[in-house]
């Protein structure tokens, strides 16, 4: 069984985000970039399924500029077999990403597509659901457990009230949540080996898809600042403040 995994290159989750003063975006120069953490979880799951003998080939995909090859190298070092970069310098929004992935699904005919539940840069949480809709496939979103069988995949989803268990017909789209697994560390031999694995580069315009932005970002602004608070000396003072000053408890 073949699995596609979508991996987006984003600003590393530990970086303190700074909004540019001209309100056109956030600072990205000289800033650490990484694979979207949810996508790392997706790659890890694919590799685990391969180790269990349930998956035969893992294809990692990234959509973006040349630097996304670094992200794909990480996926390859984690255990993906090959990678595809859909190269573009355009800003790719979820509907466009879903269309591109749909196109690759037609080409590669996988039984399963794994994505992160959300890219931590724009926090859309849309692409997997859109892809499933375009393909008319079953979808398992926010998944914390996967059991892959011959024609179905059982998933556990993290939902607002708790957990939901579903059985999905294959082929299916799955988006990962934090508790699905703990991604592995890259070992040096694996990093070296990944250098020899193939990355195919396809210019976006050769796919002939309409990927124009439907959402116009008019400006990016910093959040409102909270006023700075105070330190209290002890529990008694805290309770006193909460009762008399803030009046949030009685």
């Amino acid at each position: 069984m073949k699995v596609l995994v979508a991996t987006k290159r984003v600003i590393d989750y530990t970086v303190r985000i700074r909004v540019k003063s001209d309100e056109t975006g956030v600072e990205t120069s000289n800033i650490k970039m990484s694979m979207n953490p949810f996508d790392e979880i997706a790659v890890e799951e694919a590799v685990k399924l391969k180790e269990q003998g349930k998956v035969t080939e893992i294809v990692a995909i990234s959509i973006g500029d040349k630097t996304c090859q670094e992200t794909l190298r990480v996926a390859l070092a984690m255990g993906a077999d090959r990678a595809i970069l859909i190269e573009t310098t355009e800003n790719i929004q979820p509907l466009a990403a879903a269309k591109i992935l749909q196109n690759l699904v037609k080409r590669e005919t996988p039984q399963l597509v794994l994505l992160g539940k959300q890219a931590i840069d724009s926090d859309h949480n849309q692409t997997g659901q859109m892809l499933a809709g375009l393909l008319n496939w079953a979808q398992g979103t926010f998944v914390s457990k996967i059991e892959l069988k011959d024609t179905i995949v059982d998933v556990t989803r993290e939902i607002d009230g708790g957990l939901q268990m579903l059985s999905l017909q294959l082929p299916a789209v799955i988006t990962t949540d934090l508790r699905l697994n703990q991604p592995r560390y890259l070992s040096l031999p694996n990093i070296m080996q990944a250098k020899r694995k193939p990355i195919e580069i396809i210019p976006l315009d050769t796919l002939l898809l309409d990927t124009t932005s439907r959402l116009h970002i008019l400006k990016i602004t910093p959040p409102e600042k909270r006023h700075t608070g105070i330190k209290v000396a002890n529990v008694k003072e805290l309770i006193d403040k909460l009762k008399k000053e803030a009046q949030v408890i009685t």
Binding site: I17, V19, V26, L215, I217, L218, K219, I220, P222, P223
Partner: peptide
């Protein structure tokens, strides 16, 4: 809408 975990906000026009 918030982006980057609420460390920035995007003003988005939907056409």
């Amino acid at each position: 809408r918030p982006i980057y975990a609420g460390n920035a906000f995007a003003t988005v026009q939907n056409k």
